[in-house]
């Protein structure tokens, strides 16, 4: 998009147009981003989009007024608190704020980036900007532990819920195994029906419409594809987004990929 925009600017007669082609993905490896309090509220907090909001002020100062959902990690303790943060490969968006959006938040953001976290946002104007905008202020003890749960994909069933269904499948529910026949022959969950994903479009008749269908495969990929095929046909369906290994007795080992 930026090269296209630059092209249009040149057409308008601008003579000194440059493109930072590496853009945001490269930037966040070495630098923090900035986020206004308005965007923090409207695009993240109000929409309940998973993120990690860190209040880096001293705990006492933070308790007098803080932003909803914030976790306290005072700037001086960031480096020794790194273990608290979600694993880097989760790429959890981390937002840090201090009183005014200057020294401590920037310092904390830099420490996180140096430790390999990305993206890290500094909330512009910090808590004072939040308060000045008239946004709700919380008081009292802040959470100390970071909880970050990425949003499930549409149609995804919680692993615990799947395990419950597996242990005792309700009469109105059917586990649909969409792996191929060889995989099915090696072992299947008790009560599951095997319809390989590539055969679903030809075999709708075998899949009961009046039951809740839960699909699984060995990684979650085919299960999701099957989910979309069934969803489109009007089925009440969900899928298991997890690694599944089933032994010949039907015992399943299920873990998050």
């Amino acid at each position: 998009m930026s090269p296209d925009s630059a092209g249009k600017a040149e057409k308008l007669g601008y003579t000194n147009v440059k493109v930072y082609h590496d853009g945001v993905p490269e930037w966040v490896k070495r630098n923090y981003l900035v986020l206004s309090t308005q965007f923090l509220k409207e695009a993240w907090i109000d929409k309940d989009i998973p993120h990690v909001l860190v209040d880096v002020r001293p705990a006492k100062a933070a308790e007098a007024g803080f932003i909803k959902g914030a976790v306290t990690v005072p700037a001086a303790e960031i480096e020794k608190s790194l273990a608290k943060f979600p694993a880097k490969d989760k790429k959890a968006p981390i937002m840090v704020y201090d009183q005014k959006g200057e020294g401590d938040a920037v310092k904390a953001a830099k420490a996180l980036i140096a430790a390999g976290y990305a993206p890290v946002d500094v909330v512009s104007g910090g808590f004072e900007s939040w308060k000045a905008a008239g946004y709700p202020v919380m008081t009292g003890k802040l959470a100390e532990n970071i909880v970050y749960v990425p949003k499930p994909r549409p149609g995804e069933i919680a692993i615990d819920e799947f395990k419950k269904i597996m242990a005792s499948t309700p009469a109105d529910t059917l586990i649909l195994d969409v792996r191929n026949r060889d995989e099915g022959n090696a072992g299947m969950i008790k009560g599951a029906l095997l319809v390989p994903d590539e055969e679903i479009l030809d075999r709708f008749a075998e899949i009961p419409k009046d039951k809740k269908i839960v699909t699984h495969c060995s990684t979650g990929v085919r299960a999701e594809m099957a989910y979309h095929k069934l969803k489109e046909k009007g089925y009440n369906v969900s899928f298991l987004n997890a690694k599944v290994e089933i032994d010949k007795d039907g015992n399943a080992k299920i873990e998050k990929p």
């Binding site: 930026s2 630059a6 600017a9 440059k18 930072y20 082609h21 590496d22 853009g23 945001v24 993905p25």
Partner: peptide, 20 residues
Amino acid sequence: MKDKLPADKASLIVYYCAGI
């Protein structure tokens, strides 16, 4: 949003987006 661009056509404009 053309009006957000600078009046001086020789001034430096840097575009970025989500990368390559």
